[in-house]
Design a protein around this nucleic acid. Structure first.
Lengths: 154, 154
DNA sequence: CCTGTTATGCTGACGTGTCAACAACTATAT
DNA sequence: ATATAGTTGTTGACACGTCAGCATAACAGG
């Protein structure tokens, strides 16, 4: 018998349910998007880039908007540049910075994936919840994040 | 202007909050476990294997218990066998099957990681929620899963 | 100016997860 | 018994994400 407190049956139920739920949801979303040739990560880059307009967007800000660290961002942008979805150029005002632009192929991919994705999110996530559950989820999210990250992310 | 219904600000808030929340939570859990030299995936294998006792466990059942597909399971088990955490042998009663046993190193890893992991789950997940929120999460989970998977997973 | 600190981005190595294809066995139906 | 279908597990290729380390540039204080 262990000397620490194991999870009760009820606790296990919540935790396991969440583990399965979060994975299945993410997998479902990825599969839906994959049908249009983009990944969830692609989408998270393309959406803000398209909204940013002709001026492009600093890589730093893209990273912040998605909540990613620099490494993950650099890898993702490199892969997307290789596929011709975006372009990168040094920023004029800050020699450390990188300006990211969405290319025609990127816009096309977003147009192809966008409506289906939005619809999927509505159907499999938003519309499955009551308004009260939505509120709770937002609040729960902020509570957990506060506990995990006392200060802002890197 | 797009011809499909974009997400409203409220809808976006819920969806983005969830995306960030789920990723941060998973990342936090992985980091905590990594301190003991195991991954979340390792843990999901070791825990049922340890509970199964000397008889070991069919790979098929391990997969079902974790909700994984066969490919992911095979890769994970191969890696864990290479690290000496588990062993595999052909099942006697079914020539297709594989019997998985936890090895001493596996038990040791689980002993090292278990208490800290349990504590982490309590502190960063379970105790952050009210009993009502727990109930809601379980219910929400089952609703979403039902929508995603009309029949049982492969 | 010089020096230490912070910000920004890249890279290589590695573990993870998905997909499609395959192989081998078992179960079922005729 | 024999063909057909379902089950179980493996493999190789590839995308993804993390970590540690590196390089450069900007900033702030002496």
């Amino acid at each position: 018998m262990p000397e620490y407190r194991r999870l009760t049956r009820d606790e296990e139920e919540v935790w396991f349910a969440y583990i399965l739920f979060s994975r299945q949801l993410a997998a479902g979303m990825e599969r839906q998007l994959a049908g249009s040739g983009v990944s969830g990560a692609d989408y998270q880059m393309l959406a803000p880039l398209a909204a940013a307009g002709a001026g492009g967007m600093r890589a730093r800000d893209l990273g912040r908007s998605a909540g990613w660290d620099r490494s993950r961002l650099a890898h993702q942008l490199r892969r997307m540049e290789e596929r011709g979805l975006i372009s990168r150029e040094p920023a004029h005002d800050d020699a450390r910075g990188i300006l990211v632009h969405i290319k025609q192929a990127g816009r096309a991919a977003l147009r192809a994936a966008g409506p289906g994705h939005i619809e999927w999110v509505r159907e499999n996530f938003l519309e499955v919840m009551t308004p009260e559950e939505r509120r709770m989820l937002v609040e729960l999210s902020s509570r957990v994040m506060a506990k995990l990250e006392p200060d802002s992310p890197s």
